[in-house]
């Protein structure tokens, strides 16, 4: 299993429970693990019954966790921009610019972008600290966009840097009778910020794409809709040469069903299981039973042990 593991899947298939138990398993097997939850519902704190705020908090030996929320991240980011606005710009414009920032902070893409930013930050900075980082990511579409983001952002940042340095070169040519002064370009603030972000994005892209450190586990239920969606997602991911390691089929009904209704449900489940076996031939497929009661810190251990066969 690779260093960075993404648990993808439709909402409500039990991603959080899977990623949490897998995290416990990998921590128990001696790997220093970080569980990152991006789910707005923050169910990870409920499972471990420990308040996990948006910085790294230790839950079990060898296991840290962090809940990142787009909304909090974007608020921090916006406040930083507002602070640096104070000492740079004349007050008349600051008021108008603050209006701009508040408008931006409620626009749809912002929280998602803030979330991506934080995830990329974790991937690039925490990569050396931990042996394994597990992401309990939000629904599939979201994840696919996260993986394609470095590509899009990288190109956009590249154009910006080119345009800005062309503008700065022309200005320094104007001031130095046609010769360009290298210093002007190097200590230009805007280019510095853009370059910093560009390097971060590239590092994340390198980790996620080239070094093959990333693998993907799809959590599905034995029903028609999740299967189709997963097939589609896997094709897209393969396009970005992301390795899809395994499929976890969750909420498998117990064997000895008594009344007719559940018996027919069981047969139907078996039919889908065969389809799953068929469609995801090359992948590791791993079944997890439907739990009697919610997963809590006391019973997470024995679910975690089940992952041993999976590994």
């Amino acid at each position: 299993m690779n260093k960075i593991v993404f648990f993808g899947g439709k909402g409500g298939v039990g991603k959080t429970t899977c990623s949490a138990s897998y995290a416990v398993f990998s921590a128990k097997s001696g790997l220093k693990t970080l569980l990152v939850s991006t789910d707005p519902a923050h169910s990870t704190s409920d499972i471990f019954e420990k308040k996990i705020k948006n910085e790294i908090t230790n839950i079990l030996p060898n296991l840290d966790a962090i809940e990142i929320s787009g909304e909090k991240e974007s608020k921090i980011y916006m406040d930083n921009v507002k602070i640096s606005l104070k000492n740079v710009v004349s007050p008349v414009i600051v008021k108008e610019i603050n209006k701009q920032i508040d408008a931006a902070s409620i626009s749809p893409g912002t929280e998602e972008a803030a979330l991506f930013d934080k995830m990329i930050e974790i991937i690039t900075e925490k990569n050396d600290e931990y042996d394994r980082i597990i992401f309990d990511t939000a629904p599939t579409g979201h994840t696919v966009r996260l993986l394609t983001l470095p590509e899009l952002l990288g190109a956009w940042l590249d154009t910006l840097i080119k345009k800005r340095s062309k503008s700065v070169t022309l200005m320094s040519m104007a001031n130095h009778h046609g010769q360009t002064d290298k210093k002007d370009i190097d200590n230009d603030e805007v280019i510095k910020i853009l370059r910093k972000r560009y390097e971060k994005i590239n590092k994340a892209k390198k980790i996620m794409m080239e070094d093959k450190l990333l693998s993907f586990i799809f959590v599905i239920n034995a029903e028609k809709l999740p299967i189709d969606e997963t097939v589609k997602a896997i094709n897209i991911l393969e396009k970005y040469n992301v390795l899809v390691d395994g499929i976890v089929v969750n909420k498998i009904l117990p064997e000895n069903m008594k009344d007719d209704f559940w018996k027919s449900k069981k047969e139907q489940e078996q039919k889908y299981l065969d389809i799953i076996m068929e469609t995801f031939k090359g992948k590791k497929i791993f079944k997890l039973p439907l739990l009697q009661e919610d997963m809590k810190s006391n019973n997470i251990e024995n679910i975690a042990d089940k992952f041993s066969e999976f590994n």
Partner: peptide, 25 residues
């Protein structure tokens, strides 16, 4: 997007706002 043209990456350029705010209008 100030001019009404949706820019998908406008979140990331907010960081540059303080440096460019002077001659925005």
């Amino acid at each position: 997007d100030i001019l009404g043209i949706p820019i998908p990456t406008s979140y990331y350029s907010l960081e540059l706002l303080p440096l460019i705010a002077d001659d925005l209008d």
